[in-house]
Design a protein around this nucleic acid. Structure first.
Lengths: 254, 254
DNA sequence: CCTATTATTTCGGTATACCTAAATAATCAA
DNA sequence: TTGATTATTTAGGTATACCGAAATAATAGG
């Protein structure tokens, strides 16, 4: 357990390890880490040894990798930086939400703690970024209701989109053309497995009485959307999961 | 003349070479460059070879170093980045002007062209930074009246501060306590050499009739201040350069 | 003009963060 | 349970950007 000389590479490793376990619990393996970082497996082996030396991860050879409390703290700090930066770029510099990821990726290693806190203050200390992802506070605590991934919800569930994966700008633009965005309300008509596409019904956010009709989303899209305020809709019964004929006169605001 | 793979080190070298010639004309030597970058002479020799390979500098062994047009373009781009960032940090994130330098130093290597132009637009395309230094436009052109360094002006000259060296945060704070800042108007009472201190008389910016009295500045301070709109003041005659008794009833706005 | 000093470059070496290819451990399937 | 396949690590090598020490060029003084 040596010093805390966190290079930008080390920050990336820790961030990716954390990201893997943020919405699911099995720990990351060496090869998955390599793929996500875009480096060779051998580079990961070396680097993980270094992370272990610095007390940022627990790792036995040939086993998956876990963050230590210290590593988790660093990861949360990086996540905070990234998400605050994304929020700032969108709100203050007019970035579109599909442009922010790469810029934030660079900046998160370069900005000072002072910069981060100034930004947070100017934004009114937001708790979620433009994709709906939670922003930890300076102490690393997250205050946000839990979300459920769309492709893990059964038919008949309703909710509003609280989080959209930001890893594919293409996808973000696609969703925009479909009229799907943060806080869009929807009802799940189909259910997993989604190999053949997931049917959802959109509720127009502006006018909750208006039913935008069924829409088929590929499983890749379904795996990129998260819902909060999830529940079986009181006024809605799913008649036919595959056909998509759904009766509902009245959609209450959630 | 290889590719244009400009690392952040290369950017720093080019920036420092440019900075040395920005307000004076003799070219920089290897050892001065080493000192300013805080690296060993041997590191400079190696790196300058690389800069030459990339067509950024002209250099014969054992001679001073000159930027090529290509190197100058890169330097101006970096200067633009740095000064826009400083301006932005002060105007949008409430930084004090003695805090901005180090932050900008990091950020200038990390931000995208898109970020720079968004910032410039949001700031209304400023032509000078909080220290009064000129900000080149996107094409590398500078549009700003020339300045004169205080320790190079004779007694009896007037002008307003248009530029303050940003290399010593300590100094910036010191000037602040003296009430000296950008656009402060002043009359030079003493003259170089400044070994014994430079006498100046401040004109209060708020009330141009008010004479703040003589003030003695060390030569280090005098070498950090630049004046624009310089001229012999019409209503002012310097009676006694060393004693500091100066008669003047009426100071016109410049 | 030639020596002494100073400036600059060259020559091994170091650390970080990668790579490919070879070796080894773990897992799955017959 | 073993043999094949897959996952992971080790070994040897590259590029960048540093360093100190030794060698060499330039300059300044007698």
């Amino acid at each position: 357990m040596k010093q805390t000389a966190t290079s930008s590479s080390i920050e990336d490793y820790v961030k990716v390890i954390y990201a893997y376990t943020e919405w699911q619990d099995k720990p990351i393996t060496s090869s998955v880490l390599a793929t996500r970082l875009g480096v060779a497996n051998s580079s990961v082996s070396e680097m993980v040894r270094k992370l272990k030396d610095q007390g940022l991860v627990d790792h036995q050879p040939y086993s998956p990798i876990h963050l230590t409390p210290q590593g988790l703290a660093l990861a949360l700090a990086m996540v905070r930086r990234h998400r605050l930066l994304e929020t700032y770029l969108v709100r203050e510099l007019g970035y579109t939400w599909d442009e922010v990821h790469d810029e934030a990726e660079q900046l998160e290693h370069a900005v000072s703690e002072h910069f981060i806190e100034r930004m947070s203050a100017k934004l009114g200390h937001p708790v979620r970024d433009p994709h709906g992802d939670p922003i930890p506070d300076a102490a690393g605590h997250i205050t946000m209701p839990p979300s459920h991934r769309l492709d893990e919800l059964d038919a008949g569930h309703t909710g509003r989109i609280s989080r959209i994966s930001d890893h594919d700008p293409e996808l973000l633009r696609h969703l925009e053309t479909l009229g799907i965005g943060l806080d869009t309300q929807l009802i799940v008509l189909g259910r997993p497995p989604f190999g053949a596409g997931c049917q959802i019904r959109l509720l127009d956010v502006q006018d909750s009485m208006h039913d935008a009709g069924p829409l088929t989303l590929g499983d890749e899209v379904a795996a990129s959307l998260w819902l909060s305020s999830v529940g079986k809709h009181p006024d809605c019964t799913v008649q036919d999961v595959t056909g998509g004929s759904l009766m509902s006169e009245h959609y209450a605001e959630n």
